[in-house]
Design a protein around this nucleic acid. Structure first.
Lengths: 341, 341
DNA sequence: ATTGAAAAGAGGTACGTTCCTCAGATATGC
DNA sequence: GCATATCTGAGGAACGTACCTCTTTTCAAT
C-alpha cells in the first residue's frame, strides 16, 4: 500500500500525465468533464501531492525583505537571530531573506528605505515600524507593485497591508492588567511607560490594560503614560521624579521597548523591590531582571513563531493560497522567573 | 547567489561528488583529512542540505507508535488530535503513526500492549505511562529489538528510554508555587491534589512546588497530597471534607489529571471564589474554568510542540542523528483568562 | 618493487513532481 | 466540410540528493 503518484492518477482516470498535471495545478486547457474525471481518480486513490517532490521540481524562489527597528532594540535583534535560524534550517528553504534595519523615530528614513527596495526582485515584505501616514503610503505603493506585505508585531491597521503577524496586543495588555491586579497586595497607583504611544502595539496594550483594571481592579489607579521617545536620559529623569513623588505608586507597566534604561532608573530610585514591574518581550535585559526578582513577569511573544508565521503567510500570499488564521495566531506567553526558557 | 549544491561542494573541496556524499551521510571510506576538506567547503559555501530533495531520494518510511492513556484523559485526547494534525500536514510525512490507548491504572495491560507491538514493523515508540518495574522491563525489551523509545510528558528516568520529551516538571511545579505565592493575599493552607503520585510528573511537580513555597512563601502551609486514584467519587468526598474542615485553606494545586471531578467538588463546596486554584494542562474543562474565573491560572505544555518534538526526536534517533536538546526543550506556558489561545 | 586494502573518482539511475514542446484529437463556428 | 480554436496526449528534461557499481588512485606494509 504505497502512496499513489500522478502516474497512478493518470492511469486511473484514463488520461495522460500532462492532463493530470494541468488539473492539479489549475492550469487552463482542460474540459470540465475531464477535470471531474481526474478529481474522482484523485479521491478514489486518496492521492496526496508529495510536497517534497513538488517543491524540488518547482524551484520557486521567494525573495522577502524584513524591515526592523535599528540598533538598540533587543527585540529586533532577537527577531533577526530567529530569521537567521529559520534560514539555516529547512523552515526557510527556497526563500531569500534580506533584513533592513531602520531608525524608529525617523519616519522619513523609513520611507526612504521602503522606496529603495527593488520591487522587481521582491516578492514579499515584513514590516515592523510605527504607524505614520508616510509609511501607509509607502505600503500602498508596494502593494501596487504586487509585493505581499505583512506587518510584524506592530500593526498598521489602516494601511493596505495583507496580514498582521503578531499577538493581539489588546489581549496582551489585558493579560498584563490581570497579572498586575492579582499580584498587587494593596490599593495604589500604576505607572504605564513606553517609548511612544504612536507605536500601535503600545497603544493597544494600554487600551487592554485600562479595560481590565477599570473593570476588575478598582483599587488600582492607572496614571498617565510616560513616553521616553527613545531617549534614555528623559526616561531616567521622569521615572526618578515619579517614583520619588508618588508615594502611592505600587507598580510599573512597561508597554514598549527601552526597558534597560527603565530598569536602571527604577533601581536607582531604591524602590525596585517594593514595586510590581511588568514588561513585554523576553530580551536579555528582562531575562536578567526576572532572575533577580526585579520584574514580576514578562509578557512575550515567541520570536521563532513570529518569524515562521510571517514566512508562511508571505509564501501563501505570493502563491495566492489561503491563510489558516488559526495557525497564525501567535500566543501571548507569560514568563516568570521559574519558567524562563 | 543561489544555494550551493553538493556539486558545488565537490568542486570547492576538490573531491568527487561521491566523496562529498560519503562525508555528508557519514558513510565510511573517507580519510580524516578529506573529511575536513569537505567540511570546510561546506562551511565556506554555507551549504545546507536540501531536505526536499534528500527526502525524495531517500524514500525512507518511519513506523512509529504512540502509547497514550485511555479514555477520559482530555490531555491524551488533545495529544491524539495534535498527532492527527501533524499527520495531515507535512510535519509527519514519510512517517506512519499508530496510536494505542492503554488503561493508566493497570500496569499489566500496559505491558501486554507493549509486548503486542510487532518490533519488526516498528522504528520508534513514544510512551506516556506511569513508572512501574514492568514497564521499565518492557522498554528494555524494545530497546534490545532496536526500537527507539521516547517518553512523552511523563518520564521513566530509570528505564532505558532514549529521550524524554516534555516539560521540566520540577520547574513547572516551581512556576505553580511562584504564582500561588504571588496570588495569595494572605497566609493560609494549600491543598495539593493529583490522581496518583506514582505518576512521575505529579511527583516532580510536588517537589518543585514545595521547594519554592518553603523557601519564599513561609506564610503558606502545604498540606499532604490528596490522591484520587482516578476515582471521581473519592475525589469529591475528600475535597468536600477538606474544604469544609480546613478553615485556613486558601488554595488548591492540582498536579495531575481528573480536573473535571475536582472542579465539580470545589464548586459544590461553595468556596470556589475564595480559593486560588492552579492546575496543569489546558483541557476544555480548564479552558471553561479559566473563563469563569474559577481557576487562577493553568500551567500547560503545548501539545503541538510536544508531538512535533517527539516525532523529530524519534526520526533523529532512527537515523543516528544528533538531537538538539535546546530545540526540544518544551516551554512551560502560563495561561490566564486573558491569554487563552 | 610488489601487494592489497582503503580511499576516492566516475557515472549512472531513481525519487515524484513541474513544466515544456510538439503533435494529434475534438469541438465550434461559418 | 473546412478552417480555427481549444483540448489532450506523449515524451522528456529538469530539480538536488541518495545510493549503487565499477574503476582508479593512494599509501603503507611487506
Amino acid at each position: 500500500m504505497v502512496r499513489p503518484t500522478v502516474h497512478d492518477i493518470a492511469k486511473e482516470a484514463g488520461v495522460s500525465l500532462a492532463t493530470v498535471d494541468r488539473v492539479l495545478n489549475a492550469r487552463p486547457g482542460v474540459r470540465e468533464k475531464t477535470i471531474a474525471k481526474v478529481r474522482k481518480a484523485v479521491e478514489r486513490l486518496g492521492y496526496v501531492r508529495d510536497t517534497n517532490a513538488a517543491n524540488l521540481a518547482r524551484q520557486r524562489q521567494y525573495n522577502f525583505a524584513f524591515v526592523l527597528p535599528e540598533g538598540s532594540s533587543q527585540f529586533a535583534n532577537a527577531l533577526q537571530d530567529a530569521l537567521q535560524e529559520a534560514y539555516s534550517s529547512q523552515v526557510a528553504d527556497r526563500t531569500l531573506i534580506r533584513v533592513v534595519r531602520v531608525p524608529l523615530q525617523d519616519p522619513h528614513a523609513i520611507v526612504r528605505t521602503l522606496r529603495s527596495l527593488n520591487v522587481n526582485r521582491l516578492d514579499g515584505l515584513a514590516l515592523m515600524v510605527p504607524e505614520t501616514p508616510q509609511v501607509r503610503d509607502a505600503v500602498s505603493r508596494l502593494k501596487n507593485s504586487g509585493v505581499a506585505v505583512v506587518t510584524l508585531a506592530s500593526d498598521l491597521p489602516n494601511s493596505r497591508r495583507d496580514f498582521f503577524v503578531g499577538v493581539d496586543n489588546v489581549a496582551a495588555g489585558r493579560t498584563a492588567a490581570l497579572l498586575m491586579g492579582r499580584f498587587a497586595q494593596s490599593a495604589g497607583e500604576i505607572l504605564p511607560v513606553t517609548h511612544s504611544l504612536r507605536s500601535r502595539d503600545s497603544l493597544e496594550r494600554r487600551l487592554g490594560f485600562d479595560e481590565v483594571i477599570s473593570n476588575e481592579f478598582r483599587c488600582l489607579n492607572v496614571l498617565p503614560t510616560v513616553e521616553s521617545y527613545g531617549d534614555p536620559e528623559r526616561m531616567t529623569r521622569v521615572i526618578e521624579r515619579t517614583v520619588a513623588q508618588r508615594k502611592g505608586l505600587i507598580g510599573i507597566y512597561s508597554m514598549g521597548s527601552g526597558n534597560t534604561a527603565l530598569l536602571d532608573a527604577i533601581r536607582n530610585s531604591g524602590q525596585i523591590d517594593k514595586l510590581t514591574v511588568l514588561a513585554h518581550e523576553l530580551t536579555p535585559t528582562m531575562r536578567h531582571a526576572l532572575r533577580e526578582n526585579e520584574v514580576a513577569a514578562v509578557i512575550a511573544q515567541n520570536v521563532g513563531h513570529l518569524t515562521r508565521s510571517a514566512l508562511r503567510v508571505l509564501r501563501n500570499l505570493c502563491d495566492n493560497f489561503p491563510i489558516f488564521e488559526a495557525q497564525e495566531r501567535v500566543r501571548i506567553e507569560v514568563i516568570l522567573r521559574e519558567n524562563l526558557p
